[in-house]
Simulated scan of single mutants.
Amino acid sequence: MQDDDKPFPAHAAIDPEPHVLVVDDDGAIRSLVSKFLRDNGFRVSAARDGREMREVLDSAAINLVVLDVMLPGASGLDLAREIRRTSSLPIVMLTAKGDETDRIVGLEIGADDYIAKPFSPRELLARIKAVLRRVNVGAAASGAPARLFRFEGWALDPARRELTDPGGVVVDLSTGEYDLLLAFIEGPQRVLSRDQLLDLARNRVATGFDRSIDVQISRLRRKIEPTESSPPMIKTIRGAGYMFVPKVERA
């Protein structure tokens, strides 16, 4: 088991050849995905279950995990929770086709994206690249002076992708939560629809009734509005979308 006192790494630094860990108990899928990603410029490690996943994470610098929901022993959802307790390591979940419950639970846990089986390797590749672009956009920025966003005593540093609470404590955000918060901060006191938020947060294209934004907003609220007495930050505008309430200052 993973030692509770030994956290997973947040994620590896930017690498011209990103290292992806594929966790799936289906040997054919592991081989297919691993070969396809290697052919497209990635380093790849593979694991069959949670035990092998932990061994790889303890011994290698991983940039992103592709994690199947249905695994022997601890499920992919359990393993995602385990990773997210100590790390912001990007996670792309593999779910059963049409299983909305797994997708929603995965997003609630903090997964950055999901793809349903059976899937096209090219679509998986595109989603992996999109998540890595979002993760690396701050670190890959030029040497321009850092710019902080401040609101209600909080501070968001886009260069470091770091959110600090009024007490000076860094609050861990998943890639999706960070992108959503940045979209709100860049358009404060303005009503944003779900489709606008999906676009501004560089998330996947909305298709039909997409609950991913609602899930991410719920998670984000729990982090920046941790108690009932906390000042409301994100207001629901019935029938229209959401609005970020605080005044935002740039420093």
Rank of each mutant, 00 (worst) to 15 (best):
A144D: 10
F149T: 04
A159S: 15
A80I: 00
L94N: 09
G208C: 03
L220N: 08
R204D: 13
R161H: 06
G176L: 05
I83M: 08
S88M: 11
D15V: 05
A141L: 14
L89D: 09
F42G: 00
G76S: 08
S193T: 11
M233R: 09
F244Q: 04
F119V: 02
R147D: 02
G138C: 02
G153E: 09
M93Q: 10
R103T: 11
A240C: 08
A183C: 01
K247T: 14
D199Q: 11
P90V: 03
W154D: 09
P166T: 09
E123D: 15
F119G: 03
G153D: 13
S142F: 12
S88P: 01
P18L: 02
R54Q: 14
G241C: 07
G73F: 05
N203F: 10
R85T: 10
S88H: 09
M70R: 11
P231C: 05
L192S: 10
I115Y: 01
D5L: 06
R211Y: 03
F184G: 09
S120P: 03
V23C: 11
A60N: 09
P16F: 02
V33N: 03
V105I: 14
G241P: 01
S88V: 14
D58P: 02
V105Y: 01
V66C: 11
K35W: 15
R85L: 12
S31L: 12
S142V: 15
R84I: 03
L197R: 01
V22P: 10
L148H: 15
D199I: 08
V33H: 06
K129M: 05
M1T: 11
V191R: 08
P188S: 09
I213E: 01
V135F: 00
V137M: 13
A116M: 00
